[in-house]
């Protein structure tokens, strides 16, 4: 995991929560996680491809998910409903989309989100990308943003060329 892809996610999460949920975020320092780490009760998952490849997971304890989704959707939504999964999926979609716009000179596509429910569920992280977890707290509860991302071959050279002003 290259450090420069972590900060865009921290900034994107803060921006999305402030703008659409009117919630301030506080975060703890990013920490490494294992590929088979357990997640909270509700997770929104979205894939990235292109110059940055891997997976983004937005994982909540159930009580936090209920309160945060209520702030996002503007109404309480039952945890087991399709609408609840839709809201969690849209939230991770907007965060990932906003983060990729902060990557700089890269071409990155994001997939369609999926949502996993269940206590301490597991989601396979990419084996070729180090995992990182960033815990966040809000007045409506807590969540963890987990990233299993790597830069695709060639991006390092592209970034170096841009940084040094080289032309290709």
């Amino acid at each position: 995991m290259i450090t420069r892809t972590i900060q865009p996610f921290i900034e994107a999460a803060a921006h999305v929560f402030q703008t659409m949920l009117n919630l301030e975020l506080r975060h703890q320092p990013p920490r490494s996680i294992e590929q088979d780490t357990s997640h909270h009760d509700v997770s929104g998952v979205i894939g990235m491809s292109g110059d940055v490849v891997g997976v983004v997971i937005l994982s909540f304890p159930a009580d936090s998910a209920a309160r945060i989704v209520e702030a996002f959707a503007g109404q309480a939504i039952p945890l087991q409903s399709d609408d609840f999964a839709d809201a969690v999926g849209e939230l991770v979609n907007i965060i990932a989309g906003n983060a990729k716009s902060r990557f700089g000179d890269t071409t990155v596509s994001i997939g369609f989100p999926s949502v996993v429910l269940g206590p301490s569920h597991k989601i396979a992280m990419p084996s070729d990308a180090p995992g990182v977890a960033i815990p966040f707290e809000t007045l409506r509860g807590r969540f963890t943003l987990k990233l299993g991302l790597r830069e695709a071959a060639g991006l390092e050279a592209k970034s170096h060329a841009a940084a040094t002003g080289a032309r290709s």
Partner: peptide, 12 residues
């Protein structure tokens, strides 16, 4: 929009 949540937010 494929997200019902997003449609609802915009509709409101």
């Amino acid at each position: 929009d494929d997200s019902k949540t997003m449609r609802s937010i915009q509709k409101n």
